[in-house]
C-alpha cells in the first residue's frame, strides 16, 4: 500500500485547497461507503483523503423559504429522520434511504451517491425529478448546476479538478405537489437498481400542472425524461397519459445487457415503474 494522507478540514475553502493541492490524487470522504470499498478492491489508491464530515455546511439541512438545502455529506439516516423534509419531498427521501442497508444508511450520503456516478445510483433519479440544484465549489469559486448535468458516464462526472459537491437545493413548490421513487431489484433490499424511476408532480383540481421524470440504470447516465414529463403535464393522469409517459420512458432507454438485467427487461420495466411511481406521487399530492 502507498502512504495515504488524511485531512479533515473545518471549512469548504480548506477542503478545496487540499483537493487542488493533491493534483488529481485527492478523494473526498463523506460516508466512505463507496470509497473504502474501492480502495480495498484496489480500484482507487488516493494520495490524500479529504474528510468533509467536519464541515458544517456539508452536514446540515436548512429550510430556505419553502425549499430545502441539504448538505452533500448528510447521512441517509439523518435525512430519513427529518420529518418536514420527508413530508415535502417523500420521493427524494425514500430514494436516498434505499442506498445500501440500514447500517450503510448511517454513513452514506446523497453527495457521495451522486459523485460515485453510477447510472444506477438510487438518489439521483429522484433528485433529477425534484429539479435539485447542486452547489459545487472549486478552485475557481462556487457554481450552481442542475443535478442531471453532473453525470458524464459510468464513474465519470462533469466536476472540474478540485471541485467538491457542497449541497443540494430542492426548490419551493406549490401545494398539491409531491414525488415518488421506485426501483426494481430482484430482492427486497441490499441490491442495486435494475431500473430506478423518480417522478415529481403538481396536481391542481385533478389536473397535472407540472411534472418531472428521472430514470436510472437504463443509460450511461441518469436521464431527465422530458418527453415523459410532457405526456403527464396537462393531463388528468389517465391511462392514456400514463401509457404515453411510459412509452416516452421506454424510448429514452439506452440500456445494456448485463448481469443485472437485459435490454428488453430494463426497457419494459422503465415503463412499468413510471406508471407506478406516477400513481404514488399523484396519490401523495392529492392527499395534501
Amino acid at each position: 500500500m502507498n502512504n495515504i494522507q488524511y485531512v479533515a478540514p473545518q471549512s469548504i475553502d480548506e477542503a478545496v485547497a487540499a483537493m487542488a493541492a493533491a493534483n488529481g490524487t485527492g478523494r473526498v470522504l463523506a460516508g466512505g461507503t463507496d470509497l473504502l470499498i474501492q480502495m480495498r478492491a484496489g480500484v482507487v489508491s488516493p494520495g490524500i483523503i479529504v474528510d468533509v464530515k467536519k464541515i458544517v455546511e456539508m452536514t446540515t439541512i436548512d429550510e430556505t423559504s419553502g425549499g430545502y438545502r441539504i448538505g452533500a455529506a448528510v447521512s441517509g439516516a439523518v435525512i430519513g429522520e427529518h420529518a418536514r423534509l420527508k413530508k415535502a419531498w417523500p420521493g427524494v427521501v425514500e430514494a436516498i434511504n434505499l442506498i445500501g442497508s440500514k447500517q450503510i444508511q448511517g454513513r452514506a450520503s446523497a453527495g457521495g451517491n451522486l459523485c460515485n456516478a453510477s447510472p444506477a445510483a438510487d438518489s439521483v433519479p429522484a433528485l433529477v425529478a425534484a429539479g435539485a440544484i447542486v452547489t459545487v465549489q472549486g478552485p475557481k469559486g462556487r457554481r450552481d448546476v442542475p443535478v442531471e448535468k453532473i453525470h458524464a458516464g459510468p464513474g465519470r462526472t462533469t466536476l472540474q479538478p478540485g471541485e467538491i459537491v457542497v449541497s443540494f437545493t430542492l426548490p419551493a413548490r406549490p401545494a398539491g405537489s409531491s414525488d415518488a421513487y421506485l426501483r426494481l431489484i430482484p430482492r427486497t433490499e441490499m441490491d442495486i437498481a435494475v431500473v430506478g424511476c423518480g417522478v415529481s408532480l403538481t396536481i391542481q383540481n385533478g389536473t397535472c400542472t407540472a411534472a418531472r421524470v428521472g430514470l436510472g440504470a437504463v443509460a450511461p447516465t441518469v436521464l431527465l425524461v422530458e418527453d415523459a414529463a410532457k405526456a403527464l403535464a396537462g393531463s388528468r393522469l389517465d391511462d392514456k397519459a400514463l401509457e404515453a409517459a411510459a412509452a416516452a420512458c421506454r424510448a429514452a432507454c439506452k440500456p445494456i445487457n448485463d448481469k443485472r438485467g437485459t435490454i428488453a427487461y430494463r426497457t419494459k420495466i422503465a415503463g412499468v415503474l413510471l406508471k407506478r411511481a406516477a400513481g404514488i406521487a399523484a396519490e401523495r399530492a392529492g392527499r395534501k
Partner: peptide, 29 residues
C-alpha cells in the same frame, strides 16, 4: 429457484463473483 446463478461472459470468466450479484435471499425476502 429464484435468483442464484453463475453468470459467465463470452471468455468463460465469471461475471458475478460476489454476494451483490450472486443473489442469495436476504431476510426481508
Amino acid at each position: 429457484a429464484l435468483n442464484e446463478e453463475y453468470i459467465y461472459n463470452s471468455k468463460g470468466k465469471l461475471d458475478n463473483p460476489g454476494f451483490l450479484d450472486y443473489r442469495m435471499p436476504v431476510a426481508s425476502d
